[in-house]
Write a protein that binds this DNA or RNA. Structure first.
Lengths: 251, 251
DNA sequence: TCCATTATGTGCGTTATACGAACAAATATC
DNA sequence: GATATTTGTTCGTATAACGCACATAATGGA
């Protein structure tokens, strides 16, 4: 691609949208400028453009995003066959297991939820399509990383901020690489409260009909109810059934 | 806003993202140009920019969106208190009712789902946060329209493509305005298979602590299981409880 | 209350982008 | 297989965005 084929105004605007987030639901021009490291004048133009198009509201001081921005994410969810095809299988899986089931893909150092079937939510984390978790400490992240060439997985770990969310979180890159090898061998990953105390999960990779790993699915359960050691015995057969079924329908 | 404070390159790019959708998961440059009514050269630059930033893939012929675009929609979902605050109440509601429960807001002529708690999915429609339905024939759309000044509601109806999804769909603007008045009076809306045969739903408005309508919540059920005439008797008390609880926590 | 600090809005020269047409390449049509 | 037709790409030029600098307004302490 030639350099002249890059629309920097567009790229800057997208950066501005992403500046909004959990801890910053409303932004002033100056705040957005700091977060995006763009010039204030530029950010101001982007924000006013967003407001003009109806993607943002402006009260003269703060900008907030409007539900219209969901159109952008929805463009992916409805345009991509993967989430749509996986959803019914996830529903079945979740019902049979009596626990929440999710599907995700890898994006950089994070897993992105693309579909979810939730039973009553007991956990503090609120996950929905578009939610992100660090790959290194999530069950689906582990199987997705394990599906990559070692060098690539290593590179992602190196770029990850390996912090201990709980006392049980594995944060040593070498230990994690070792774990990835185990995951690759056994074909599934179990997480024992590495992300949040009280939460266990088990994930398997999902392949398309050509055998390429295109996503991961998992089941999450409260540790108090299902100890990590029991996860595989309880849910692995269900997960494997779902995986097999999906492999036949995913092109 | 001065005209010079509008970044047209940004606006064009957003338009290009929205060109992707259910029936068009992959687009060529020419297709995207037609859909957006932009110059081919301009669209090409936008698409190449998206690809460069990782929001799209390009195989030399087709562009497809990547999960990274979910970041944009997620910026809204996680930035806005409304979906996060409503979700747990929706979960409770769904569990008590034994049916799917959803929350939505109005965006133009459509309702946008901002949260959803689904029981086993029996319907053909697959709804998730970001999903859109025409307001005129959806239960949440009716209560949201009913909450607007008459002239505004009328203007939205006039801009809507009032098509009969089923033989039961109300499509006459005057009849719809009459229905909105009834909805406003009784405080809820029931839809009897106007969107899809076999699907009934009931919705109530949700107000914040200052009494402003900020969203709608609904319960959907298969008509075979719960006839429209029974919806109110079965679910209205639950919906009203939820509404009352939400009113206290939404600022 | 005043002053220091920080945020917002505007004008302008420089730089980069969009436009439209023209060309090249690939498809479709007969 | 030759001719239309559509699609992708390139290029020069008019134009619009950028970012700096300055002016103005809002905020927060002493």
């Amino acid at each position: 691609m030639r350099e002249s084929d890059f629309v920097s105004g567009f790229a800057r605007g997208l950066k501005v949208i992403e500046a909004f987030g959990e801890t910053r639901p409303k932004l002033t021009i100056a705040e957005a400028a700091k977060l995006t490291e763009l010039d204030r004048a530029t950010v101001r133009r982007c924000l006013l453009t967003l407001a003009d198009l109806g993607y943002a509201d402006y009260d003269g001081k703060f900008f907030t995003l409007t539900p219209k921005v969901l159109r952008l994410g929805h463009a992916y969810l409805s345009a991509t066959p993967l989430p749509l095809m996986i959803q019914p299988y996830l529903d079945q899986l979740s019902e049979k297991a009596g626990q929440s089931a999710s599907a995700s893909v890898l994006d950089g150092t994070e897993v992105v939820y693309i579909a979810r079937a939730s039973q009553k939510r007991v956990m503090s984390i609120n996950l929905s399509p578009g939610s992100r978790l660090p790959a290194y400490c999530a069950s689906m992240g582990r199987v997705l990383l394990a599906a990559l060439p070692e060098a690539e997985a290593r590179s992602i770990l190196d770029r990850s901020e390996l912090k201990a969310n709980t006392p049980l979180t594995k944060t040593d890159p070498n230990a994690l690489m070792e774990e990835l090898r185990r995951v690759r061998d056994q074909g599934y990953a179990v997480i024992d409260q590495e992300l949040e105390l009280g939460l266990c999960s088990i994930a398997v990779p999902v392949e398309n009909d050509r055998g390429r790993v295109v996503a991961a699915i998992n089941i999450g359960a409260p540790a108090a109810h299902v100890p990590a050691a029991e996860m595989a015995a309880r849910y692995l057969p269900l997960l494997k059934d779902t995986r097999k079924a999906l492999r036949l329908v995913l092109r």
